[in-house]
C-alpha cells in the first residue's frame, strides 16, 4: 500500500512540476510576447510590407556590393516583415541561380531573430527560449545573448548565402554540360 502511495505521489509530482513550469512561462514571457506581437504587427501593417519588394529588385543586381544586401539585409527585412514562412516569397525578385541561396539565408534567420523579435516565428520560439530559460534561471540578463545570437546569425546567413550561391552555380553548370 505504501509503495502504491509513493508511486501515486511521484506520478502526480511530474505534472505538478510541469504545471509549475507552465505557470512560470505563462506569467513570465507570455504577457510580454503578446504585447510585443501586437506592437510589431501594427507597425508592419502601418508601414506596409510591399516597400521591401523594391529592395528585392535592387538586391538581384550583380556586383560584390550587393552580396550583403541580398544575403543579410534582404533576409532580415523579409523575416521581420513577412515572418516565417511568407518571408521566402521575397525570393521571387531574384534570378533563379540566387533563389536557393536566398532561401538558405532567410530560413537560417528565423531563429536568430527570436531573441529580440519573437513575432517573426512565435511557433518555434523554444529554439531560443529553451536555452535562454537556462540562462535566465542562473540570474543573468538575456540581452547580451539575444543580441549576439542576432549578430552571429547575420554573419552566418551571409556566409550561407555566398556558399550556397557558389554550390548552386557549380551544380547548374555541371547540369548544363551533361
Amino acid at each position: 500500500m505504501d509503495t502504491l502511495a509513493v508511486w501515486a505521489q511521484d506520478f502526480i509530482g511530474v505534472f505538478n512540476q510541469g504545471g509549475a513550469v507552465l505557470l512560470s512561462l505563462m506569467g513570465g514571457i507570455l504577457p510580454t510576447l503578446v504585447v510585443l506581437l501586437t506592437a510589431v504587427n501594427a507597425l508592419i501593417r502601418l508601414i506596409g510590407p510591399e516597400k521591401i519588394e523594391s529592395l528585392g529588385v535592387k538586391a538581384a543586381q550583380p556586383g560584390i556590393q550587393w552580396y550583403p544586401v541580398r544575403y543579410m539585409v534582404l533576409p532580415f527585412l523579409a523575416v521581420f516583415f513577412f515572418t516565417n514562412p511568407m518571408a521566402y516569397t521575397v525570393g521571387r525578385f531574384l534570378p533563379e541561380r540566387q533563389k536557393p541561396a536566398f532561401y538558405d539565408a532567410a530560413v537560417s534567420f528565423v531563429h536568430p531573430i527570436l531573441g529580440i523579435f519573437p513575432h517573426a516565428n512565435p511557433g518555434e520560439l523554444f529554439v531560443w527560449a529553451g536555452i535562454s530559460s537556462g540562462i535566465a534561471a542562473l540570474g543573468f540578463d538575456l540581452g547580451p545573448l539575444a543580441i549576439r545570437y542576432l549578430l552571429v546569425g547575420l554573419v552566418v546567413i551571409f556566409i550561407r548565402g555566398i556558399v550556397t550561391e557558389f554550390i548552386t552555380k557549380v551544380m547548374m553548370a555541371r547540369k548544363g554540360n551533361a
Binding site: T89, G91, R92, E96, K99, P100, Y103
Partner: peptide
C-alpha cells in the same frame, strides 16, 4: 520555400 519564391522546377532540383 523555393516554390514560395516562384522558383522553376529545375532550380528546385539543383537547389
Amino acid at each position: 520555400g523555393l516554390a514560395l519564391g516562384e522558383a522553376e522546377p529545375e532550380t528546385v532540383e539543383v537547389g
